[in-house]
């Protein structure tokens, strides 16, 4: 059988890669995709803990479904924002989107 620690390490690595992407990329779309990586790492951990520690309690999987819904709405709103900003400023580089900075 696969030990629980393997899933945890894969989840932690995926989470860290996502953090790097969200911090280092200049493209707003790439940042959005890195956030998807982070959410997926969390989902992987949730399902792994459900399977290994509390297989009789359904809460772990319900939480994953809620994360799916949150991810879908986050992407929908995020992409709408990016399209709107692109229409007005003709750029999706995050350092050029500084209208709210003062």
């Amino acid at each position: 059988m696969i030990p629980l620690s393997w899933y945890i390490i894969v989840g932690a690595a995926l989470f860290s890669i996502g953090i790097y992407g969200a911090l280092a990329r200049r493209n707003a779309l790439a940042i959005l995709m890195a956030i998807e990586l982070i959410l997926n790492a969390v989902n992987l951990n949730l399902v792994a803990f459900w399977r290994y520690l509390t297989p009789n309690i359904v809460a772990g999987k319900v939480f994953v479904l809620v994360v799916f819904a949150v991810a879908a709405s986050e992407v929908a709103v995020g992409l709408a924002l990016i399209i709107s900003i692109y229409r007005r400023r003709h750029t999706i580089a995050v350092e050029e989107i500084d209208m709210m900075k003062w």
Partner: peptide, 16 residues
């Protein structure tokens, strides 16, 4: 999600 992202990638390809 992936299809939505790809469509927006194609729409905004002139920037970056």
């Amino acid at each position: 999600i992936a299809i939505m992202i790809i469509i927006v990638v194609m729409l905004t390809q002139r920037s970056m």
